[in-house]
């Protein structure tokens, strides 16, 4: 236990400051995200991530949002296990034909009003895989989409920006 505490003390909080590459803007994006989530979702945005056929690259970057650098939960964003608890679906693809029915069911199970974001080049347009006997291509070919986050895969910061942008549209959707 002492060693754990020593390690924690030595490492400290790595979340701030972030000098490398494009991270000075992380805090800024994060604060905006937090404000919007506060305003529109009572401080808590629940996301159900659906891999509808991706290569797993996008999933790795979505998972990175939970590491201590990004710590997306501190901005009020968290990932839930059931679409019934979700405000937003974050869908990676191309949507394989074998996942078509499952994605539609997840969409139907998500309560209105809901937001759907297509993630990655594949989710946005089918990417390298396109449309074929096995692939429906873009997420929008299967369920209605409110926003896309491009990139192959999008970086964690791109993902945060994309989520922020999409919830801006939520205002319009609200009854």
């Amino acid at each position: 236990m002492l060693r754990i505490l020593a390690k924690i003390q030595k490492i400290g909080i790595v979340t701030e400051p972030l000098p490398k590459i494009d991270e000075p803007v992380l805090q800024q994006v994060g604060e905006q995200l937090k404000a919007k989530v506060g305003e529109l979702f009572g401080g808590s945005l629940a996301i159900r991530q659906v891999d509808a056929g991706s290569c797993n690259g996008c999933e790795l970057e979505i998972n990175a949002l939970g590491n201590p650098y990004y710590g997306i939960e501190r901005f009020g964003v968290h990932f839930v296990a059931s679409p019934r608890h979700a405000d937003m679906l974050l869908v990676t693809g191309p949507v394989s034909r074998h996942m078509e029915a499952a994605l539609k069911r997840a969409y139907d199970a998500t309560p209105e009003p809901k937001l759907v974001i297509a993630v990655g080049e594949c989710g946005a347009c089918g990417g390298e895989f396109g449309v074929s006997y096995a692939s429906c291509g873009a997420v929008a070919n299967v369920v209605p989409v409110d926003g896309v986050i491009r990139g192959c895969p999008p970086t964690p910061l791109d993902l945060m920006r994309g989520i922020l942008e999409a919830i801006g549209k939520f205002q319009a959707k609200r009854p």
């Binding site: 290569c55 074998h98 499952a102």
Partner: peptide, 30 residues
């Protein structure tokens, strides 16, 4: 399994070498 079947073997056909390398890069992103 088979839910993420994207037809990789089929859509590889007819690509040039660069195109195949891009597809191979996405067989498993990790």
């Amino acid at each position: 399994l088979g839910y993420t079947h994207k037809g990789i073997e089929k859509i590889a056909e007819g690509r040039d070498a660069d195109g195949l390398a891009r597809l191979a890069s996405r067989v498993s992103g990790d």
